[in-house]
Computed example of a mutant assay.
Amino acid sequence: MMITKSFLQKHIDNFPDEFTIEELIERFIFIDKLEKRIEKSNRNDTISEEELENEMQQWFK
């Protein structure tokens, strides 16, 4: 995803008045991941609940 000034401004306006550079980076990483997931959802590029449950079962084996 390409980052624009307007994207940064939109999200920085929602930040607290003071924050660390680490918090800034973490928040933008989170926002980037969230936006990518929303795009996938909008394209119906998702898995069913059953598929998710099967995948999660594999994680804990």
Rank of each mutant, 00 (worst) to 15 (best):
L34V: 11
M1F: 03
F60W: 14
E22S: 09
N42H: 10
S41N: 12
S48W: 00
S41P: 01
I12V: 12
I38P: 00
F60K: 08
R37W: 13
I3N: 05
E35A: 12
N44R: 01
K61S: 07
I12C: 04
S48I: 01
F60Q: 02
K36F: 03
F7T: 13
E55M: 15
M2H: 02
L52P: 07
T4W: 01
I31S: 03
N54Y: 01
K10M: 04
I38K: 15
D32S: 07
I3M: 06
K40P: 04
H11Y: 07
I3E: 08
W59A: 13
I21F: 00
N42G: 11
F15Q: 04
K10T: 09
D45A: 11
N54P: 05
F15K: 10
E51F: 00
L24K: 14
T4P: 01
S48A: 15
P16M: 00
I47M: 07
I29G: 00
E39N: 10
E50F: 08
I38W: 15
N44S: 13
I47K: 05
M1Q: 10
T4R: 01
L52H: 10
E35H: 13
N42S: 11
F15P: 00
F60T: 13
E39Q: 12
I3P: 04
D32P: 01
E55Q: 15
E51P: 06
S41D: 14
E23R: 09
Q57W: 04
N42Y: 10
R37Q: 04
N14G: 13
K33P: 13
I12F: 03
T4S: 04
W59V: 13
F19S: 00
T20M: 13
S48K: 09
Q9L: 10
E26L: 02
E51N: 14
K5C: 03
E49K: 02
D45R: 03
F19L: 00
M1A: 12
I25H: 03
R43A: 08
M2A: 15
W59S: 06
I31R: 06
E23Q: 08
R37Y: 14
R27S: 11
Q9T: 02
L8D: 00
P16K: 14
M2E: 03
E50S: 15
I29C: 03
D17N: 04
T4V: 02
R27I: 14
R37K: 14
I12D: 08
E26D: 13
Q58K: 04
E53P: 09
W59G: 00
T46R: 05
N14S: 06
F30D: 11
I47D: 00
E51V: 05
N42K: 07
K40L: 12
D32K: 13
R27K: 14
R37G: 10
S41T: 04
E26Y: 06
N42M: 11
Q9H: 05
S48F: 02
R37S: 12
I3S: 08
S6M: 07
E55N: 15
L8T: 07
I25V: 14
E22Q: 14
Q9S: 07
I21T: 07
